[in-house]
């Protein structure tokens, strides 16, 4: 042997796996760091909302439609409720939707995309179905689901999950197609390793990078789908707040109290921005290799 690599002293399977370390590196870049800090701060605020404001989001008073001040950071709404409090509770709702819908969509989409490895026919059919979903605008799809399930948290989660499937499915299938050509996949097959094991061991790990990045991108889309459906009144129902629901009501008072929607908008943008920064940073580290 002409070249000898430096001896590795890392004992077997201890420490952090290299792929996890790679994702960790995304947090070291300025963009990733800012993204994750903003997300953590917002998550902390929304989780601690019941502790900070134990009276809840529905405390009404006679001081309606006030502009932002030190007592009411974002002002008050038409029923004299503090918009800052309602925004934090709204953020809570949004996080609860993201935390459920995005991972479910990711996992389901990936599984659907990988079905092609087990049966070519099933793979083709699934892709065509995903194409049909892709052809539906998110809002129209949401309206259809709301018509069936009725407005609320559940239908939002379902709508968001379904609208995410095509992207995840496509990415997983792309990874599958390219990996199936690789010699190490052929090697595993000639060794007699089962299809399912090959899928989990050799193909899935290579599909995960683009899917994770898409996951972060999709969070942003999810927030906007929630907002869009809530703005037209098909999402979260009053009095429960969500960022989208707040905007929905706020736009009605845009003439009397233009500052009504300011706070929720800023929070929504911050959240979306933070996730897209994170997605960007992830994308960069993952593709650098």
């Amino acid at each position: 042997m002409t070249t000898t690599a430096p001896p590795s002293r890392r004992p077997r399977r201890s420490g952090v796996s290299p792929s996890l370390r790679r994702y960790g590196a995304a947090l070291k870049s300025p963009r990733g760091l800012v993204g994750i800090i903003v997300i953590l701060v917002l998550a902390l605020l929304s989780v601690s909302a019941p502790l900070l404001f134990p009276d809840g989001y529905d405390v009404q008073s006679s001081e309606s439609l006030l502009a932002p001040s030190f007592t009411h950071l974002f002002g008050t709404d038409e029923l004299g409720r503090d918009i800052f409090v309602r925004s934090l509770y709204g953020l809570r709702t949004d996080f609860s939707i993201i935390v459920v819908a995005v991972p479910v969509s990711m996992i389901l989409g990936t599984i659907l995309g990988l079905i092609g490895a087990l049966s070519r026919v099933a793979g083709t059919i699934v892709q065509r179905v995903l194409d049909i979903i892709l052809g539906f605008p998110g809002l129209v799809l949401g309206i259809c689901i709301v018509l069936v399930v009725g407005p609320g948290w559940v239908s939002l989660v379902i709508a968001i999950t379904i609208s995410g499937l095509p992207a995840f499915g496509r990415l997983a299938r792309a990874a599958l197609m390219s990996q199936m050509q690789r010699e190490y996949v052929t090697a595993a097959e000639t060794l007699g390793v089962s299809r399912l094991t090959v899928l989990g061991r050799h193909i899935l790990p290579n599909a995960i990078d683009p899917i994770l990045v898409q996951g972060a991108v999709f969070v942003v889309q999810a927030i906007f789908i929630e907002a869009a459906l809530s703005i037209v009144g098909l999402g979260i129902q009053p009095p429960q707040p969500s960022l989208g629901a707040l905007l929905n009501v706020g736009t009605r008072f845009i003439n009397q109290a233009p500052t009504y929607i300011l706070g929720p908008t800023v929070l929504l943008l911050l959240l979306a921005l933070a996730f897209s920064l994170l997605a960007d940073a992830l994308n960069e580290t993952v593709n650098r290799k």
């Binding site: 792929s19 090697a187 060794l191 061991r201 050799h202 290579n206």
Partner: peptide, 18 residues
């Protein structure tokens, strides 16, 4: 697979880099 095995041409692509 127990009795016949295969050695590939390209040692760079026949091992999973991960």
């Amino acid at each position: 697979s127990n009795n016949i095995q295969y050695v590939f041409q390209d040692p760079y692509s026949s091992l999973n880099p991960r």
